[in-house]
Design a protein around this nucleic acid. Structure first.
Length: 904
RNA sequence: GCCGGGAUGGCGGAAUCGGUAGACGCAGCGGACUCAAAAUCCGCCGCCCGUGAGGGUGUGGGGGUUCGAGUCCCCCUCCCGGCACCA
């Protein structure tokens, strides 16, 4: 869809900015024709028309210019833009435009993460096909994005729900099957027994299905996995290749991958006359002599066997099946267990150890069994206390007394403990004990050291309709057969309307029926679709490519990739970013791309919050009030003392601050903001209110302040055009000697510019906005009575407009043209502070005595240390606070100012 | 529960390498302009004591290092993100 101005104002050719007054002033220079009042709608319309006409954001490879690929996480088309999007994309746009002005060849694309659950929920609610709902949302949100003036190359737009995109999900999945990376095994899912359907974790509320209220069960079904663990070593090691990522994200990923070296070993047993081995893994082999029981998962073969002739245990195992599969729930739920009556032998002592079934042991993790050392593991300790099991101390820390009464932190200490009650291992520390015990287990062929990863393989099968079909055909004779490349894509039918009771694909004969690619006989298609994280694992590479019909990516990808700056929410710190890194490495191993890591620099932006107001209803329910439906009362200090609903004047409760959400009614619609104030105000407030990585609190008053500032910028431009600019004669600023006032003003502007440039490099945009405000404050107070003064102001204004332009591009563009600085501010060079402007004759020093601030001192900028010390000692401050004693020590701090100190 | 992060006036936040805490903005208070209002402009604004000059105190709480700590170290509290099927 082509860009269309939302209103009729302005001309699409973009050659002139303001039309209304142009007839009366047609013969004057353009800067004299500008309107006195800031009219954001006109200004923004015209600026966008200019960018559209000159194809300003079309990105093509240009050898010889440094490239900059700036990518914001693409949105899920949920209906309309929310403030989080506005914030995310404004950050990206500021970086994009800043780099454009600094001579980079910039690519900033945009697209749609278009498969996912909300489309199915909307279908259930409104009986709209997910495809239609999604397409409508994309059209609306695209128009919203365009009205915000982002410097996006829309020729590269893509949506992951379109066959020309997801074909390549399927194609790469088939390559992964060939490589042995994709494979099939059972997975545990949430099962709603009433709707007979698999539920997502978010559809399980307090252990019940969201629609039916039925108790959710765990169910094992087959599914496809991607062996991300084959890349675990590289994913961990390559974190060191990402210095442009926040330290905390790298730490989170490293912990998630979770490399640990431990011991995998077995407890031998004999059951039903057959010998067997209970395998398990531990990182605390040094405590092996303290094992008093073992625990297995409810689905473990030993548990199943024991339940055969133990109805109580069978009931307990059944109970374990109910409940959520989420790790957070598993970790916080009450630990329960039951003995199986089966005993295994301790691999080193031969002692009999009983096997229990524990609801906290996961079959899908490790071997589905754990050794229990109640004395040195907090969870085992609680479990043993609850069921009266033996607690045997085998680690001691000198000076600490062990007691089974209560758990103490040091019981689990690896650093300072040594083995006790452990026979030949007594006295050994952690590392030595693990080594000795592993060697002994190996000698008995009952175990060995093993590297263990916390990271699990990525289950990609989803029993849902609105996703990318998994390209597999099920044939009675041939089994699961991959769809041949020349039959791709397997197209998802777009007319289905899910109703919440299972996947509609499973009932759609037109989709299901097919011929087996191998034997040609009638067969059935796989109805599972792929996790939507697959879609978002490689979209950045497609953006950088020419969208070829016959290739996943082409050569151009290697020009733009890796992404120089990736921007998105901190909530994606682990899964999306890890999956993308993994997918990139697979593509690299297939020689599709030439990079190891997809994202060179990462900026994780904080969430957008707003105030929450509520009132408890007569029946006990809580109703929420939107912030604009509430009046606040203040005390004399400006502190909020209460709130009342505008509708009825009755008090409402202030519920603090929280993420914007529909249910709390505290969301702010970007659309109304844009219509009311314009995109520049929205963008400026977003950048000014807090630094990108922190949460941002919404404030209507703050938005007003941003709007007020932009009006002042406009008014100053008008003043400059009418009064100041006419004073400028022969250009003399480069050579003239400025008086103290003008030199001070010029120095202030250049100092602010220096700070703004520093902060841009740090990606701290709130202080860039604040520097622009300070520049305007200085310019408004500036003398303007001479040609030289006018020239200083002109220079300052040109710096201000350029500093502002990445944040508020429309108004900066309009004023730049109107005031005669040039045709296109995007083509103007980014300003740099001048040494001559920053120089000063005198500097102010601060005096501290014993670390306390006591006074200040002005000295010549070129004064020597000795001169400054002499002046400091002679100062009133020294007389008063040093009581005539000589300074014992001096400290000199940062350049530009310093301080001194004496000790008593 | 585990992993990661955060806490500075009435509010959002600033303080670049351990060196003037509170820049900039919002809210509030006082004033100018106006018939009036809006808009705009000027001034004040951490807390306590003091008429004032000035003094003390202060960056979630407790301890420590240092001439000097919002910043570094240890302990604690509260809040937020993630926990593998929300995206």
């Amino acid at each position: 869809m082509l860009w269309r101005p939302p209103r009729a104002a302005g001309r699409p050719d973009g050659t002139r900015i303001i039309r209304r007054s142009s007839r009366a002033t047609a013969t004057r220079p353009p800067f004299r024709s500008m309107q006195e009042k800031y009219n954001p709608a006109e200004v923004e319309c015209a600026a966008r028309a200019h960018w559209q006409a000159s194809q300003s954001f079309r990105a093509v490879p240009r050898p010889g210019k440094p490239k900059y690929y700036c990518l914001s996480m693409f949105p899920y088309p949920s209906g309309k833009l929310h403030m989080g999007h506005v914030r995310n994309y404004t950050i990206g746009d500021v970086l994009t435009r800043w780099h454009m002005m600094r001579g980079f060849n910039v690519l900033q694309p945009m697209g749609w993460d278009a498969f996912g659950l909300p489309a199915e929920n909307a279908a259930i609610q409104n009986s709209v096909p997910p495809a239609k709902w999604t397409d409508d949302n994309i059209a609306y949100m695209k128009q919203q994005l365009q009205s915000l003036g982002f410097a996006i190359d829309w020729t590269r737009e893509l949506a992951t729900c379109k066959p020309d995109y997801y074909k390549w999900n399927q194609w790469l999945f088939l390559r992964m099957l060939e490589m042995g990376i994709a494979y099939k095994k059972t997975q545990v899912v949430n099962w709603d027994p009433v709707d007979q359907t698999v539920l997502a974790n978010e559809q399980v509320i307090d252990g019940r299905g969201w629609r039916t209220g039925a108790l959710v069960e765990k169910r094992e079904i087959p599914g496809y996995y991607l062996a991300i663990t084959q890349y675990a070593d590289e994913l961990l090691a390559d974190l060191d290749k990402l210095p442009g990522w926040p330290e905390r994200v790298r730490t989170m990923q490293a912990n998630w991958i979770g490399k640990s070296i431990g011991v995998r070993f077995a407890f031998p047993y004999e059951l039903d006359g057959e010998p067997g081995k209970l395998w398990l893994f531990t990182t605390r082999a040094d405590t092996i002599m303290g094992v008093t029981f073992c625990a297995v998962a409810a689905e473990h073969p030993l548990a199943t066997r024991a339940a055969r002739d133990n109805p109580a245990l069978a009931t307990f195992i059944d109970e374990c099946r109910r409940g959520s599969v989420m790790e957070a729930d598993m970790a916080t739920m009450e630990k329960k267990g039951m003995p199986t009556g089966i005993f295994v032998s301790h691999p080193l002592t031969g002692e009999k150890v009983e096997v229990w079934v524990g609801n906290y042991v996961l079959m899908s993790y490790g071997e589905g069994a754990v050794m229990a050392v109640p004395a040195h593991d907090e969870r085992d300790f609680g479990f043993a206390k609850k069921y009266g099991l033996t607690i045997k101390q085998v680690i001691s820390v000198s000076g600490q007394a062990f007691s089974t009464d209560a758990w103490q932190e040091w019981y689990a200490d690896k650093q300072s403990g040594v083995c006790v009650n452990s026979g030949k291992y007594d006295g050994l520390g952690y590392a030595a004990a693990v080594q000795a015990i592993a060697a002994d287990l190996k000698a008995r062929s009952l175990g060995d050291t093993q590297v263990q990863w916390r990271l699990r393989d990525w289950g990609v099968s989803r029993q849902r309709y609105w996703g990318c079909p998994i390209p597999i055909v099920h044939c009675e004779a041939c089994g699961s057969v991959p769809v041949p490349d020349d039959q791709l894509p397997v197209v998802l039918p777009v007319e289905c309307v899910p109703d919440g009771s299972g996947n509609p694909l499973a009932r759609l004969e037109a989709f299901l029926a097919c011929d087996c690619p191998k034997c040609g006989k009638p067969a059935r298609r796989e109805t599972d679709t792929m996790d939507t994280f697959v879609d978002s694992s490689w979209y950045y590479a497609r953006f950088a490519s020419k969208f070829a019909a016959d290739a996943m990516v082409d050569e151009e990808t290697n020009y733009w990739m890796p992404v120089d700056q990736y921007i998105g929410g901190i909530e994606h710190a682990i899964l999306h970013l890890l999956y993308s890194r993994f997918w990139s490495k697979v593509m690299r191993d297939l020689k599709l791309v030439s990079y190891d890591e997809p994202f060179a620099h990462l900026l994780t932006q904080g969430m957008v919050l707003n105030h929450i107001f509520s009132r408890r209803g007569e029946k006990g329910g809580v109703s929420y009030f939107a912030p604009d439906e509430v009046d606040l009362a203040y005390d004399a200090n400006g502190k909020v003392t209460g709130a009342t609903a505008r509708a009825d004047g009755q008090p409402v409760n202030y519920g603090g601050i929280g993420t914007m959400s529909k249910s709390k009614r505290n969301g702010v619609d970007p659309q109304s903001l844009i219509e009311h104030y314009g995109a520049d105000t929205a963008r400026f407030f977003m950048m000014f209110a807090s630094p990108p990585e922190q949460t941002l609190e919404w404030s209507d008053a703050g938005v007003d302040g941003a709007y007020r500032f932009l009006r002042r910028v406009w008014a100053f431009g008008h003043l400059f055009a009418g009064e100041i600019r006419t004073r400028i004669g022969a250009r003399q600023l480069a050579t003239a000697k400025l008086g103290a006032t003008l030199a001070g003003l010029r120095r202030e502007i250049h100092l602010l510019l220096k700070q703004a440039n520093y902060d841009l490099a740090k990606q701290q945009f709130n202080t860039v906005a604040s520097a622009a405000m300070k520049m305007l404050n200085a310019l408004e107070k500036a003398p303007r009575d001479s040609a030289l003064a006018a020239e200083v102001v002109e220079e300052g204004l040109s710096i201000l407009l350029r500093t502002l332009s990445p944040i508020t591009p429309h108004i900066a563009h309009a004023l730049w043209c109107e005031l005669g600085f040039g045709d296109d501010i995007l083509a103007a060079p980014w300003p740099e502070p001048l040494g001559t402007a920053l120089a000063q004759d005198e500097i102010e020093l601060v005096l501290q005595v014993n670390g306390k601030l006591r006074g200040s001192l002005r000295v010549a900028a070129n004064a020597t240390t000795a001169q400054i010390e002499a002046a400091a000692l002679a100062s009133e401050t020294a007389q008063k606070y040093m009581e005539g004693k000589p300074a014992k020590r001096w400290w000199w701090c940062r350049a530009g100012w310093s301080m001194s100190c004496c000790e008593p």
